[in-house]
Write a protein that binds this DNA or RNA. Structure first.
Length: 573
RNA sequence: CGGGACGUGGCGCAGUUUGGUAGCGCGCAGCGUUCGGGACGCUGAGGUCGUGGGUUCAAAUCCCGCCGUCCCGACCA
């Protein structure tokens, strides 16, 4: 393409409120323009990148036996009601009505649709299957942000595995893990697969692919020795043994004005050190109150509570009034000793502990000598604790590190949730019917693009890897008005095109500085500068975008050099 | 949804406190001089000041409602 003829609206000024680097650079470089909150036009330059990302995904999905299809994104609400997700997804699901007042929804992930399609599978002989689509998803995000990183309409590759049994599901899951590793690596991303919470998707096990980056919204926990990695919503750490000493009797004692873990510990260091206290929190899960017990020096990880309770969303702390009505005391003097009729979730760190201190459900009174197993009617034990930076690794005792990441992919073992709802049954070799085991796997295409920019840029602009670059080479003509220069550049450009290299000819009537700056901003991996200074001597300057290193190359060799360089990197690594 | 901020040519902003009929930089068009790291001169085009109402002789400016966008919190590819 000739730059003078294509639509690449670069900007000198960044959008004022853009906060993520990728947002700024993609707007400035003329890749995207915002239409509304969380809604972007992908401009020609952006579309070239998007198509390359999609192509990589498609190749790798096909390589593991994936079959692409195109289901609708507009669905009857009825289908979502049947799976229970019409309610579960809450306001995140776009809902609308047609002219007949029939209720419709816009797909935000499509387990339901693929499960229905799978109704045409009847036998174990038909399995396994891997089906996928690459197209638009809608989510009514409460807060779109950071350009392409979080939007309301985006392209997702979602695939679904269908298997006769758990073993088959495990195989499909691992195939996806491998495919995802290759996809992200080919895109030039360093993505880590980490254990994650399954959230509203349902299912037993999930792994998230994350790319390190401050613009991300995920907190990731990894061990300094590299043998542990998990999402904070899921992560856990080793705990030092606590010696509780000889059991003492349960006793009430006055604690006037002591309402926090800290002040109580200071007043009664012997019996109320933070790790000797039981913190009692009141939460409402789907409208039902629960008591959540944590060790005094630990914080609750809310997602873990949701997972333990099997609740999709609908979590909130109780208000002071609710708590007063429920337990008869205000926060600061709460406890679960003797409490009945309310579900009690206790963190595993409290298991087997005695000589503990906790509120007595009367303002300004506490209990000491609490034996958790003896005195508290725990409904459910669970790991509810939020990991803190520096805690010891479960596997090796090394220090855990917390860092922010961008979730670029997520793979789930769903199991039979949807196949049971929609009666997707297949017969095994003995003629017995089983609900199909489903897996569900997603990659956000535009978010992936943004993640590449987040992790590959410098103060001049984007640095695209060849594998996803909008153009592979830009031929920059320094003086397009000088015929011999223009002719030399044009010949090189045509030679590159002829060899299959995606070249952009910067033939614009601009000063060299403008052209250099623009090509660096849009991140083309290689630039050849053709100017009067070199053409006279038969040389041009070849510049690699990463590091901006330049060298002089004879004009008659530069084409082959570039064809070789680009060809070697086009597939990604 | 809770908290904070903003809305003025295509982009970035000033003007609002103290009402007087809209300005700067970039970009854009024409001409000329320039041209290996974001040039310069001259000329010019382009604005319902988000929107509806109110106050006033007079509103970008003051008051009220609405809409939109961004940032901080709870959700996700």
């Amino acid at each position: 393409m000739r730059w003078s003829e294509v639509f690449i609206p670069t900007l000198r000024d960044a959008p004022a409120d853009a906060e993520a680097v990728s947002h700024k650079l993609l707007v400035r470089g003329g890749f995207i323009r915002q239409l509304a909150a969380g809604s972007y036009t992908i401009l020609p330059l952006g579309q070239r990148v998007r198509l390359k990302v999609s192509a990589i995904i498609r190749e790798e999905m096909n390589a593991i036996g994936g079959q692409e299809m195109v289901p609708p994104t507009l669905h009857p609400a009825e289908i979502w009601r049947r799976s229970g997700r019409y309610e579960l997804m809450g306001d995140n699901l776009f809902k609308l009505k047609d002219r007949k007042e029939s209720e419709l929804v816009l797909g935000m992930t499509e387990e339901e649709i693929f499960a229905l399609t799978a109704l045409e599978l009847f036998s174990y002989r038909d399995l396994p299957q891997i089906w996928y689509q690459i197209h638009t998803k809608f989510r009514d995000e409460p807060r779109p942000k950071s350009g392409l990183l979080r939007v309301r309409e985006f392209t997702m590759k979602d695939s679904y595995t269908l298997d006769i049994d758990r073993a088959g599901l495990d195989v499909g899951f691992e195939k996806h893990r491998d495919a995802y590793r290759r996809i992200f690596s080919r895109m030039g991303l360093t993505a880590l697969d980490v254990e994650a919470s399954s959230g509203a998707m349902g299912g037993s096990e999930s792994v998230e692919f994350v790319v390190k980056g401050d613009a991300g919204e995920d907190w990731i926990v990894t061990c300094e020795n590299d043998d542990y990695r998990a999402n904070l919503e899921r992560a856990t750490s080793a705990l030092a043994e606590v010696d509780d000493g000889e059991p003492a009797p349960l006793e009430r004692f006055p604690t006037p004005g002591l309402r926090t873990i800290k002040t109580l510990a200071q007043a009664f260091p012997e019996i109320a050190a933070p790790d000797r206290q039981i913190k009692t929190l009141v939460y409402y899960l789907d409208g039902h109150p629960v008591l959540v017990l944590m060790r005094g020096d630990h914080d609750l990880q809310e997602q873990k509570l949701l997972d333990a309770a099997g609740v999709g969303e609908g979590i909130r702390p109780g208000t002071a009034e609710e708590i007063q009505g429920l337990l008869g005391a205000m926060p600061g003097s709460l406890g679960a000793v003797g409490v009945e009729g309310i579900a009690i979730y206790a963190d595993l760190a409290l298991r087997g502990r005695h000589n503990m201190t906790t509120g007595a459900n009367e303002d300004d009174w506490h209990y000491s000598g609490v034996d958790v197993d003896r005195d508290i009617a725990t409904t459910k034990w669970a790991d509810l604790r939020a990991v803190v930076d520096g805690q010891p690794c479960l596997n090796c005792g090394g220090e855990l590190r917390l860092w922010k990441g961008i979730e670029v992919g997520h793979i789930f073992k769903i199991g039979t949730k949807y196949s049971e709802v929609f009666d997707v049954l297949v017969q095994d070799e003995n003629g017995q019917s089983h609900p199909i085991q489903m897996g569900s796997y997603g990659i956000g295409v535009e978010r992936g693009m943004a993640a590449v920019v987040e992790s590959s840029h410098d103060d001049k602009g984007i640095i695209w890897p060849v594998s996803v670059a909008p153009y592979e080479v830009v031929v920059t003509i320094v003086r397009p008005d000088e015929d011999n220069v223009m002719a030399a550049g044009e010949k090189l450009y045509l030679d590159l095109l002829g060899a299959g290299v995606e070249a952009l000819l910067d033939d614009r009537e601009e000063r060299p500085g403008v052209k250099f700056a623009d090509s660096e901003l849009i991140g083309v991996p290689y630039r050849v500068t053709v100017g009067p200074r070199g053409v006279a001597d038969g040389v041009v300057e070849m510049t690699t975008r990463r590091g901006l290193v330049s060298e002089e190359v004879p004009l008659d060799q530069v084409g082959d050099r570039l064809i070789g360089l680009v060809g070697a990197q086009r597939h990604g690594s």
